[in-house]
Design a protein around this nucleic acid. Structure first.
Lengths: 350, 350
DNA sequence: CTATCTTATTTGAACGATCAAATTTGAGAA
DNA sequence: TTCTCAAATTTGATCGTTCAAATAAGATAG
């Protein structure tokens, strides 16, 4: 049975003081090289690890980050958050931080959860997701000078997100939908519809704006209102939305999610059995999209998570000299596939 | 600006001792009713919350649970873990516990992560997922008497899982696949195939055994080997597996996952365009299955997560008199749908 | 050899809570 | 009044660490 070691017990065994052992761990340069080596050897020999509680009590730092876990609405798009979460956990772990989850009913509840976590557990920082217009959370955190990074731009109509007071990482979804739209235009389509979510969600509006931009540039005189449908995210709504768009004369559809696109492709197939591959592009490049051969916009989620962590650790300790980019907009990419639902040629067409 | 409160500062303001305040929080029965009320008023007035670090240092309990987060392999089945995770976080939170995530490369790595978390952070307990044959993790934890609950039975050929030394919660997948198989047999099918995963994963073997059991009972003389195909989980493999089964004469297919079923349904449609609805049943009842109208076996994940937490909290504090069921096998349920891929009548057919 | 730094190490004092034991208070009985 | 006993409250010690200041040990210069 391994006995429990503490700074004091180790120091006694070594015949040095506790502070020397502490320094060997936290400020090695203050310890004479040979002493350092001796202490280090003893530490690994004993398998000693400093207690988080003792440390936290004195330093007021917990090495703990927290993030709200949203209920998985749709299993398809949920996988995006899954990837983010895993990558975030992994990156944090590499930097010596732990990731704690919590749930909340709404933003106000989330804020009161912040309050609690800060009071009791001395949380070091937060990761925000699902940012949206007039997001009260960022103000609250900024005011209290709590370290945090948002995954998602600040969606304010007024000001440039790159002037924001807080750090954020996001993925340029608009560029992806624009690319998809341009691809269709280049192939001769004139009426490219957009099937997205109701106004208000930052990411959703961004994706719509990419389509709008591309249409304005490449298809002058487009009736934007007629070629846009907004529905809650689900496969079923994808079917309905696509039907509406086709009724408006759309010959291709760019979607805000793979869920919608899956439904749209199905509707397409239903309405026009002989029209060949559905001219539909999804968003997120989920495994389902790959499986059914649906073109989709893929997002560098892992890179986003990594940058989120590095921004956070930089705020917490001026780690290294170089300051990471405070406002990072990563590129998304159109993955083009032959769209044969259920034929499962999942590989991108090069 | 709210000043930081501590037990001592509050006690001084009230003219009582710190221990009285502490007792008001932890052992109210020891405090005279009127004092109690006065202290409680002051606590909520000041918004005082005890520091986790101070508490943890003294009590050696962190009120923290931990779970390994596996990388999301397949976006479809990942949603199951998503639901579990959310429900687990929520239940833990209700009981005053926090949930911490960590990642690991393999089981050995997971164990060394346990070790680290226990040493440094005084973790109170663990939740294990993805249990399998000869799982080294349970032994390790049992030996050290670390509180934990497994989501997944102990898969030992030798002993009865209900005699296991540790607490677990699981869902009876075999009953689900058996029900699906019986449904097909009742409809006149004789050769019902099983499309599952390679031997070794507990849950996968369990699902196969349910099918086997039902076939043995309802279709005497079945050539089990011919009607079983084992592949890694993916939609593509579902296609291939189904083709192999159909070649063996299968007229219906029970699958170990919705991913496989999705592929199987596609293959079916491809091979027999005029055969009507594919006789295919999936597993997990993911949103995708609902969306494409695929029958599937649904699992009471939320109930499983809740029971997991209550088992864990019971181990940690003999909370309440009644001891929760140490080995709980929850029922799964066959959700029957008209299988029209992409037609999105997602509602169960009653 | 002593005075003056610099470097290395040690000591005292927190951080905020709870446990265990000691003390005070109050009521009821002798 | 005095004693006993239970209830209510307080005090001292401790959990394991780091900060800040004090000391000890060497080295360099005068």
């Amino acid at each position: 049975m391994t006995p429990k070691h503490t700074l004091v017990s180790l120091a006694n065994e070594l015949g040095v003081s506790r502070q020397t052992v502490s320094n060997a761990i936290n400020s090695p340069h203050r310890v004479k090289p040979e002493t350092l080596e001796r202490v280090r050897a003893a530490i690994s020999e004993a398998g000693y690890r400093p207690s988080a509680a003792g440390r936290q009590l004195r330093t007021r730092r917990s090495m703990d980050l927290a993030m709200r876990l949203y209920p998985s609405t749709d299993g398809i798009n949920g996988s995006i958050l899954d990837r983010f979460l895993h990558s975030l956990t992994e990156s944090a772990q590499l930097e010596g931080y732990r990731l704690t989850l919590f749930t909340a009913d709404d933003d106000a509840d989330e804020i009161s959860e912040y309050e609690q976590l800060l009071d009791t557990a001395d949380l070091d920082g937060f990761v925000l997701t699902n940012t949206h217009h007039a997001d009260a959370r960022t103000d609250w955190l900024l005011e209290r000078e709590v370290p945090f990074v948002a995954f998602g731009r600040p969606w304010s109509a007024r000001s440039d997100p790159f002037d924001a007071a807080h750090a954020w990482v996001d993925i340029d979804g608009g560029a992806g939908t624009a690319a998809a739209t341009e691809m269709f235009l280049a192939r001769g389509h004139r009426k490219v519809g957009f099937l997205g979510w109701p106004e208000g969600s930052g990411a959703g509006d961004d994706r719509r704006s990419g389509w709008r931009r591309a249409m304005a540039a490449g298809a002058a005189g487009t009736d934007f209102a007629a070629l846009t449908v907004s529905v809650e995210d689900s496969v079923r709504n994808g079917v309905r939305g696509a039907e509406a768009l086709v009724a408006q004369g759309a010959t291709a559809i760019v979607c805000a999610s793979d869920s919608l696109a899956l439904g749209a492709a199905a509707a397409w197939r239903q309405l026009m059995p002989d029209a060949g591959e559905p001219a539909v592009v999804g968003f997120d490049d989920t495994p389902v999209a790959a499986a059914v051969g649906l073109s989709s916009v893929s997002q560098p989620i892992e890179a986003a998570a990594q940058h989120t962590v590095s921004l956070l650790t930089h705020q917490l300790t001026g780690y290294g000299q170089t300051e990471p980019e405070q406002h990072l907009l990563l590129k998304s990419e159109l993955v083009h596939r032959r769209s044969d639902p259920f034929i499962t040629r999942g590989e991108p067409v090069s």
